[in-house]
Amino acid sequence: MPAANGVLVVAETERGGLAPISAELLGVGRTLAEVLGGTLTAAVLGSGVAEAASALGELGADVVLLADSPALGEPGVEAALEALTPLVTQEAPDILLLGHTPDMRELAARLAFRLGTGLTTDCTALRVEDGVLVMTKPVYGGSANAEFTVPRARPQMATLRPRAFRPAVSDPSHHAEVRHVPVEVGAAVRSRVVETVREEATTGPSLKNAKAVVSGGRGLGGPENWHYVEELAASLGAAVGATRAVTDAGWVPPGLQVGLTGVTITPDLYVAVGVSGAVQHIAGCSGSRNIVAINKDPDANIFKHARFGVVGDYKQIVPPLAARIKELKR
């Protein structure tokens, strides 16, 4: 067993600041580093990300490795992979954590193969047992949990499901030692992003961080009935989500998918309209504090996860419900 070299987390930035996953990485990273008795290091890669370094210190990092280069501001993970591989080899951490976000999960898998080590993706719990990292992840669409270890290879790598871990709390008096990491990105570019198409922001709050979400499933019958979901969401001030069946059918954009291969959300209130509750969908919404299900099938799986349920025709329930909620909110 190699000497414990602590925990390295790869922070993520968005629009110049830290993405929420960064605080979640440092939260669990700190716990693991304390058990192992090693340091907690955060690496941040990007272009113009120097300000993130102090924020990472306030979130508890002992050391911040800052790789700041215009090459790292390009879309895609090629440059980040080139920069991160030698950095991780040199730091030789015992544990390496990244977010299970679109770019980072790609980066993590490719890095694991480059380093010849083991990775567990989409983890929902991490603990150290007998000096080894035990990584828990949902499998079979969320029907079961699996615990994995990486017995020999190092670092032990994991990607963290967003919003599954408690974020570190910022302490303005805590400072990290900041080290600048030289970036040499010279690999031949074999693929390049020629266009980025952003979906129009829907009105109302964003799905990821909304306190309330109303989702629609195949039980709505067709896209012409989607307005029921929007009407209820508007009454609650909620964001709108959908099941994979609905996004695959093209009723709404893929970005609205709640579930295993979509967004994982943890709102206070989740209202599922015409959603059967396939395990793959539950995987994305089971962190909701309160689930309300409206479905005409009393045996629908969604009722097993709901706090409140209505067995009935959503077309009859939703309009008076939206009206009543508006009255109560006045």
Binding site: S191, V194, R198, A201
Partner: peptide
């Protein structure tokens, strides 16, 4: 597919 849309990659 990216979080809020898509990238076209050659």
């Amino acid at each position: 597919m990216i979080e809020d849309g898509q990238q076209v990659i050659e």
